[in-house]
């Protein structure tokens, strides 16, 4: 732990240094939530039914903003950071240090995440809960579901981290990852239910996606927050998260051991 805490500190300082960028980005990104909010409002105005495929208007709002929050907090920059280091050769500098490669990255990013959590987690959750309170006339906040959500969120972040590390290692073979990185974003957003809620997809497709690792990234924590899962289902989903986390760690170790042998540094 002592070895890695300086990395966390560096990560925190880094995000504080660029705080103006951070807030501008946040405003730009959260705008799409508000667009979808208005779209859903129009959808519910255009239909006589109180629900849309089983979701009420406030369900949809909670889904939108909590999915945004979950996506923001589980986002991992590993692919880009690792691909850059491989391309410019600075990865060699990391390899001669007496610490584990992925742990360095993890603790550096944790510093970043601590700042993120402080800045946006509380305001967004409070905003969503205030909205629900006003619309339904009663406080909907459920402490148990909230705590389970936090645990599930941490698991989702770790899965995302190891997945991105493995993906970044592909730069050992491909050298340039710009296109592959965009492809990854698009596919993950679709498979994880972040673009289209899995409940809206055809039954067969939804049940397949539910068993892939990607639903663990966003859909599982969000559904837990919304109280859509029963106790048994929560247990099943979180076990699957743990399972996929172990698989991802294993994959990253295997690729690392294989790739390191054929590493050919481009300068640095």
């Amino acid at each position: 732990m002592r070895t890695y805490s300086p990395f966390t500190r560096a990560g925190m300082l880094e995000s504080v240094a660029y705080r103006a960028n951070f807030f501008c980005f946040l405003i730009g990104e959260i705008m799409s939530c508000f667009i979808m909010f208005f779209v859903w409002k129009a959808v519910f105005m255009s239909t006589d039914s109180e629900t849309f495929m089983g979701f009420t208007m406030e369900d949809m709002v909670v889904y939108l903003f909590i999915t945004f929050l979950t996506g923001y907090l589980t986002y991992s920059d590993g692919t880009y950071a690792i691909a850059t280091e491989i391309r410019d050769g600075s990865i060699a500098m990391r390899m001669i240090k007496p610490c584990s490669f992925d742990m360095c990255f993890l603790f550096q990013e944790l510093g970043n995440k601590i700042i993120n959590v402080l800045c946006i987690f509380a305001p967004l959750v409070l905003g969503v809960e205030a909205y629900r309170w006003i619309i339904t006339g009663a406080c909907q906040f459920d402490v148990v579901h909230f705590l389970l959500y936090v645990v599930s969120l941490v698991l989702a972040y770790l899965i995302s981290f190891y997945f991105n590390v493995s993906y970044g290692f592909m730069a050992f073979y491909l050298k340039n990852l710009w296109g592959a990185d965009i492809l990854k974003e698009v596919i993950i957003n679709f498979l994880s239910g972040a673009t289209i809620p899995l409940a809206f997809m055809p039954k067969a497709l939804a049940s397949v996606l539910n068993f892939l690792p990607f639903s663990s990234l966003s859909y599982t924590p969000v559904m837990i927050y919304m109280g859509m899962y029963s106790g048994a289902e929560i247990a099943l989903r979180m076990t699957m998260q743990v399972f996929w986390l172990c698989v991802m760690i294993l994959i990253s170790k295997v690729i690392w051991n294989h790739a390191v042998k054929r590493l050919c540094s481009q300068g640095g």
Partner: peptide, 17 residues
């Protein structure tokens, strides 16, 4: 290849939307 992957991904994203 990198560039083509990028362009195809963009198309895919729009199709999903």
């Amino acid at each position: 290849v990198d560039f083509l992957t990028g362009a195809v991904s963009f198309l895919l994203g729009q199709v999903i939307q």
